[in-house]
Simulated assay, not measured.
Amino acid sequence: MAFNPLEHRGIPLEKQVRSWRELNIDPIDPDNADPYTRCRVITMNGIEVEAALFNHHLNRVCADMEVKQKLAEVRYIEQQQQKAVNWLLPGQSSVLETTLAYEQVAVDLTGWVARMEPDPYLKQAYEFGLLEDFDHLYRYANLFEMIEHRKAEEIVDGLTEVMPGRPTIQHHRHPADNLNEPYDRTTAAPLSKLHALTIMAAEQQTMNYYMNVGPQYMEPIARSLYQEIGMVEEEHVTHYESLVDPGETWWERLVNHEYNECYLYHSFMETESDPRIKAIWELHLNMELAHLHVACDLMRTYDGRDPESILAPELPTPVTFEPNKQFVRDLLATQIDLTKLGTGYVWEAHERFEKIQRELMGGHPPASEEVITEHRDRMGGDYRLETEGPHPVERLRD
């Protein structure tokens, strides 16, 4: 049945504060939980972090004390939600284990969005980033086996393949080539706006995670790999955030953020396999419904516009974590050599790309190449998890 968030009031804002005991939720079981439950947890953590950061930025440019007070109330609840969600991750999981889950999110969430995106230009942006995150999963999987002597199969459970994507060495571009043309807020489909916010927030959370956990390792190859891929995540955040129309007003952006949270919590409530976690998604959805109405009231007051003029009349098809193996393989076979030039996509390396490659490499291979070389030297080959037959590019080359 169609669900329109604007027709539901949710839990009143003044009744949403939870005690410490209520927030201290038992984490998921790292050995028995559905891998996609963990993916949903990681996704919603990124969404809640983006919600809080956006609210803070709005607070910094807002002069009206009554509005600032209302933003502070909502922001406090968003932060409680973030703690409840992120604390679902089990403490015994290593940083690398969680990293593999982050990259599984990047592959299968971006894959789903790319498949569903109605705008060809935006779809290309998601497909482009997907092949890079797919390669990151491969590099980290090889590091995981060398450092922890475990296989990524334990984490991704065969739902996501592990094999080379667009080589990470090719991800390092001139900063100007990470920009994209934004969608037009007056003509873009409401779904396109939700997609852009979702992937932007997920990549932002990955960027933040890597920049903080990378130095925790003692092994030089691990420190170097997190540093390198962390810089690619900076590129990805630029890549995705530039898709959002900068002409949107603060109030319009606030409404879109809150509507997107409703969309994702509703999606995950509908698709969650764990009843206990499903109840958390349902609770947070009912909180976000009230946040959405606060944002809509602010837009009516300060923008003089009706939120219904920019929102979909009902939530789109639920976002679903599911295997994207054939989709990824098709992209590997057709787009692996693609790169960026300005806001466009080209097949050949160009002068600006080659110049920054020389500056960054300094005549030496990066960690993303060294981790594979070291794995092959130690173990006689690289680690892969190919469930659908040989790598499509290598099959074509053969």
Rank of each mutant, 00 (worst) to 15 (best):
Q92W: 15
M116H: 13
P118Y: 11
P118I: 13
M116C: 14
A114I: 07
W112L: 04
V107E: 03
P120N: 08
E103Y: 03
A106E: 01
P120W: 05
P120V: 05
E97P: 00
Y121G: 03
L109C: 12
D119K: 04
E117M: 10
L109E: 04
Y121C: 01
S93L: 08
L100Q: 10
G91T: 02
Q92H: 11
Y102S: 14
A114M: 08
M116F: 10
S94K: 12
L109M: 12
R115F: 14
A106W: 00
A101E: 15
T99P: 04
P120M: 13
T110L: 07
T99A: 13
E117L: 14
V113F: 04
M116T: 12
A114Y: 03
Q92G: 07
A101T: 10
D119Q: 12
Q104D: 10
A101P: 01
V107W: 03
P120E: 13
L122V: 10
E103A: 10
E97V: 00
T110Y: 00
Q104N: 11
Q92V: 06
Q104K: 08
W112Y: 09
A106F: 02
E103I: 01
R115S: 10
T98C: 05
G111R: 06
S93N: 15
E103K: 08
A101C: 12
D108F: 02
V105D: 03
S94D: 06
L122W: 02
G111M: 07
V107M: 08
L122S: 08
Y121H: 06
D108Q: 14
E117W: 02
T110C: 07
M116W: 08
A101L: 09
W112H: 01
Y121A: 07
S93A: 12
V113P: 00
T99W: 01
A114F: 05
W112G: 02
M116A: 14
A114T: 07
V107L: 11
V105K: 06
Y102H: 13
V107D: 03
V113R: 04
A101D: 15
P118T: 10
G91W: 03
G91H: 09
T98V: 12
S93F: 02
T110P: 01
A106K: 02
D108R: 03
L122P: 02
A114K: 06
E103L: 15
M116E: 15
P120A: 13
L122F: 09
L122E: 10
A101Q: 08
S94H: 14
W112E: 11
Q104W: 00
L100K: 01
D119T: 06
L109Y: 01
T98E: 11
Q92T: 08
E103C: 05
D119S: 10
P120Q: 15
T110I: 15
D108T: 09
A114H: 07
Y102F: 08
T98Q: 15
P120R: 12
